[in-house]
Design a protein around this nucleic acid. Structure first.
Length: 642
RNA sequence: GCUCACGUAGCUCAGGUGGUAGAGCGCAUCCUUGGUAAGGAUGAGGUCACCGGUUCAAAUCCGGUCGUGAGCUCCA
């Protein structure tokens, strides 16, 4: 038997006689807690099971329970155990499809006539626990592909057969625990006993291979952890997310509503929500003005032919509504604002001296969304983009992208978002323009990100039809990401619309166009803000900043006086003079998440003051009415940053 | 759009196997005038999403439409 040498990545080496398993090598190299917490190993860069056999020298690194990779392996194994439980409970009527680990959990897709019910979940979970108790090893084998096809075919597992038939390898990898066999690359945990803390969460339909023309499968989602506390925390977070759901808070706080008669995906902003939105818009306009933008207003419809020129009809029509006829001319509801800004551009002969031209508009657009995609404020059919178009020369492009990124990150930060992921999306299949133009535009974005030192990932084929884009996904308080900002470089529309400017050489040149939206859409952004702040908005854009509460009717007139004075001072204030107890009024103001409650009783009335109770329950000492107004104004100014 | 589930007062929800509806909150009126998260009483609110069918009779069964939710797909 030849000796093989196994090196531990973090230091240490051992010689073993071949063949030896990873587990044996590991035991020789590490001990105690680390050995116990190792559930798989990365050997020469490849993740493998502990009982994998080593035939040659290897460099290994343990995969520990508390690593992301470890958790992923656990969840993947849990998916197998769930499939085993389902198989044992429901037999061969169920066909198994695929069952990967996903972010925060796992799923497994099944074909079954009757839908899984929540009652089934209990049964499945119980069976899973039994399987875990049996501590069944996950045994790994390689068999020939034809053998595997034969085996799954006799079991009637058509999806597995399909997957195998598309593979090209001679041999394939399968895993078995108990009687349950699955086609799987692995790795897995050593045995089922490690699966203690798991929970099945929901079931939903999913197409086989994501193709809506193929079988609809039932996807059972679940999650698993090594540690009970972490499972609890996760389930807690789910509860917390439910409490923060913007649809629920939007209703409770009277921010927005939708109405069957008006239509799905069309938002009605109630007074409080409209106030919130106005504050956001005002801030946005001010900040844009400071950053060298001018504002535009453009209409909601335009002649059909415009969209032919722009390319929308060829490349974006599935998102557009049917045209309408006005005096025998076809018109089209706008899905984007860009052609209108181009129209403004073309209203004059442009000179290079005007550049860069920065035009912004809170432009309301309408896009067709499939009924099933609609979701509260986050996915709607009519929405207002905080759109802008920058027209510039090629030599100004980089600086303009820098400027946009700076403004973008500033605005996000002001709203409390300083954690984000950045993506660079490249040319999609359906698109206009030549390859070298796309290449140029993509490089411009890429270099700008690199020079700014902003890390990013490439999202291949996810650009817009007229150009590549940078997307910024912000992370909220619960760590969830939301796509809002987008920056797109476009050499194509200027060409299609035959846009020109006169250069220093007195000749015509074509400008470059940058499209960008920072908040994305007001609807989505407000939805994200609601969830991020759980409805308790910072003072500077809280729709209501203060509510005056009198203790008895004797202070009703004083209450009124405080209210009027604050309102005149520009404070967004309400009064509650109802014949109710103070406790009751406080409770209600608290549930309305109002930042400041101003309590006025005999003392305050006599002294001309207010007692301030903050949203966190703490009290400030009594202060004068104007003093309070100044305090709120100053805090708002600071929050807004202008 | 597809799969599954759901659609009862402003809101949150009850209403085995068909006999034209209930609660809590909110709202109105009255009593109470009470200092930091719900005082009490009385009362007004519903063509049970909409359309059609089965039935002597439908909120309840069946079909369709619209809407909502979880996903698939898609994206600001």
């Amino acid at each position: 038997m030849a000796d093989i040498s196994v090196t531990l990545e973090e230091g240490g080496q051992v010689s073993l006689s071949s063949p030896a398993t990873i587990g044996e090598a590991l035991s020789a190299l590490v001990s105690g807690k680390q050995r116990k917490n190792t559930i798989a190993v990365r050997a020469n860069g490849k993740a493998v099971d502990l009982d994998a056999v080593l035939n040659a020298d290897a460099v290994i690194a343990p995969i520990l329970k508390d690593s992301d990779e470890g958790l992923e392996i656990l969840r993947h194994s849990t998916a197998h155990i769930m499939a085993q439980a389902v198989r044992e409970l429901f037999g061969r009527d169920v066909k198994i499809a695929i069952g990967p680990a996903i972010e925060n959990g796992f799923y497994y897709d099944f074909l079954r006539e009757t839908p899984f019910s929540p009652d089934d979940f209990e049964q499945i979970e119980k069976r899973m626990a039994e399987i875990a108790d049996q501590a069944l090893p996950f045994s790994h084998r390689h068999i020939s592909r034809t053998e595997a096809i034969e085996m799954f075919r006799t079991q009637g597992e058509k999806y597995k057969v399909e997957l195998l038939e598309e593979m090209e390898d001679e041999t394939v990898s399968i895993y078995q625990q108990g009687e349950f066999v699955d086609l799987c690359r692995g790795p897995h945990i050593p045995n089922t006993s490690l699966v203690k803390e798991f929970k099945l969460l929901r079931v939903a339909g999913a197409y086989w291979r994501g193709d809506e023309n193929r079988d609809v499968l039932q996807r059972i989602y679940g999650t698993a952890f090594f540690d009970r506390k972490e499972l609890k925390k996760y389930l807690n977070d789910l509860e917390e997310a439910k409490k923060r759901d913007h649809r629920r808070l939007g209703k409770e706080l009277r921010l927005f509503t939708v109405n069957d008669q008006i239509g799905a995906g069309l938002i009605l902003w109630q007074p409080k929500g409209a106030q919130l939105r106005r504050l956001i818009e005002d801030y946005w306009k001010d900040e844009h003005y400071r950053h060298g933008y001018e504002l535009l207003y453009t209409p909601h419809i335009a002649r059909h032919d415009l969209w032919k020129t722009s390319g929308h009809l060829d490349f974006y029509s599935e998102n557009m509504y049917a045209s309408m006829e006005i005096d025998e001319v076809k018109y089209q509801l706008k899905p984007m604002n860009c052609p209108f800004h181009i129209g403004v551009y073309k209203s004059d002969k442009r000179s290079y001296r005007e550049f860069p031209i920065r035009w912004a508009e809170l432009g309301t657009v309408y896009r067709y969304e499939r009924a099933g995609a609609l979701h509260g404020l986050l996915r709607v059919r009519g929405f207002t983009q905080d759109d802008a178009h920058i027209f510039c020369r090629e030599d100004q492009l980089e600086e303009e992208i820098f400027n946009i990124l700076d403004l973008n990150l500033l605005i996000l930060k002001t709203f409390g978002f300083s954690d984000y992921d950045i993506y660079l999306s490249t040319r999609p299949e359906k698109s206009v323009g030549s390859d070298d133009i796309w290449e140029k535009a993509t490089m411009a974005l890429k270099q700008a990100l690199e020079k700014k030192g902003l890390g990013f990932e490439i999202d291949p084929g996810e650009g817009v039809f007229y150009g590549p884009k940078i997307d910024i996904k912000i992370k909220d308080q619960l760590g969830r990401s939301w796509q809002c900002s987008t920056i797109q470089v476009d050499f194509n529309l200027p060409d299609r619309f035959d846009m020109t400017y006169t250069g220093a050489d007195n000749r015509d040149h074509q400008p470059i166009m940058i499209h960008r939206a920072l908040m994305g859409s007001l609807e989505r952004f407000v939805g994200v803000l609601i969830e991020h702040y759980a409805g308790a908005f910072p003072i500077w854009f809280a729709p209501i900043q203060a509510r005056v509460l009198n203790i008895t009717d004797d202070q009703a007139a004083y209450c009124e006086k405080v209210y009027n004075r604050l309102r005149k001072a520009g404070i967004r204030v309400e009064k509650d003079v109802r014949n109710e107890k103070l406790n009751y009024k406080i409770r209600e103001a608290q549930m309305d998440k109002i930042p400041y409650m101003l309590i006025v009783g005999e003392k305050e009335k006599a002294g001309g003051t207010v007692t301030v109770r903050m949203r966190d329950g703490k009290n400030l000492p009594p202060m004068g009415i104007d003093e309070f107004a100044d305090k709120v104004i100053e805090e708002s100014r600071q929050g807004r940053g202008i």
